[in-house]
Design a protein around this nucleic acid. Structure first.
Lengths: 202, 202
DNA sequence: CCTACCGATCGGTAGG
DNA sequence: CCTACCGATCGGTAGG
């Protein structure tokens, strides 16, 4: 006689997972964000998709790989959004505005990814690649600000301080944004664009 | 016959600890910052002050209490610095400048405390008190900005967004500041004060 | 996809 | 301030 085990299709459907592996990655993301990487067990992740911990290894290769995939995927998405946002835009002020808007949009729409990405770098066994992508991302903003300084349209003492400030205030959005809050993602992106332009003196 | 165990006075003297308990708290702070709360063992903390893990319990009451003390001490210090910075200053622009300078100074001078305080809130068993202190601290900045708006000297769409931006960019300093870097703490505080005033439209 | 289990780790206590 | 140790936890493997 077959014993029915509840497979909770609701848990899986909630995040629109393409397949089992995607559902597992989504559950891991949520749990890493809520409890931290180290406090999350493979049994926790399994339970979130309706299976036991050891069964996860039929779909993913381990806990550390789940974290690495999340963090690399986050940086890839951020760099792609940045490139698309400034593509074809020549005016340096407009380029900065669009880059900041993309930055803020990502941190509002992908709060959990940004949150885990910023908190769990120390949990990565080989953080090198993620750190290089982060440096490249920051460099994009700094060079944009340096160009504005060279053209004489921005006025700021240090391009590095300005780029850090703008990136940090945008990252902070991931800490408090909620869809049901005072501002929509678009409104937020626009207002942060304004604040960033003020920082560089426009 | 007595076996000499190296007691490593250098490890203790390095951080100028007033007593054994203070040395333990400093070692815990450094290890929590470098490895994370959960990844740090009582044996690690003991080794940093030259004793075994179980011996720590003669001086401190446990790992969780060490974390709680660090985080409460951080918020107390931040609130005290803020109060002192704005004390007796009536002009709202000058009040904001001084508050931002104090904020940045703390995050540059107490990088580890700020780092642990921002990353390990989820590791606190009873985070209520720390969260209340954080809210009060943010509220101080928001009310300052609201006052500037009411007086007509600041121009910003949302006092909340402006306060989050200013606080987040100051907190970011803890992630990259080094004493041997391009700017001194004072230079950094002054420049961030400028950026904050630009954000509010001064 | 499961149960059983290995090997290792850890916070804290006992008792000197 | 130490060693010995308890009780609990956990990532991953074996073998079905």
């Amino acid at each position: 006689m077959k014993v029915e085990r509840p497979h909770r299709p609701g848990d899986i459907a909630a995040g629109l997972p393409a397949d089992r592996a995607a559902a597992i990655r989504l559950a891991a993301l949520r749990l890493f964000a809520a409890q931290g990487y180290r406090a999350t067990t493979m049994a926790d992740i399994g339970a979130a998709v309706g299976i036991r911990g050891p069964s996860l290894y039929k779909h993913v290769s381990g806990k550390q790989v789940l974290l690495a995939e999340i963090m690399l995927g986050t940086m890839d998405a951020l760099l792609a959004m940045h490139a698309e946002a400034v593509d074809g835009v020549t005016d340096v002020t407009e380029r900065l505005r669009r880059a900041v808007e993309a930055h803020v949009r990502y941190h509002a729409r992908h709060r959990l990814e940004a949150f885990v990405g910023n908190r769990e770098i120390g949990s990565l066994e080989r953080p090198g690649r993620v750190l290089r992508l982060r440096s490249a991302y920051e460099r994009g903003f700094r060079e944009l600000i340096e160009r504005g300084l060279a053209e004489g349209v921005f006025t700021v003492r240090s391009a590095r301080l300005a780029s850090y400030s703008i990136l940090d205030m945008g990252m902070g959005v991931a800490n408090w944004f909620h869809d049901s809050g005072e501002f929509s993602v678009d409104q937020l992106a626009y207002q942060y664009g304004d604040l960033a332009l003020r920082i560089v003196g426009r």
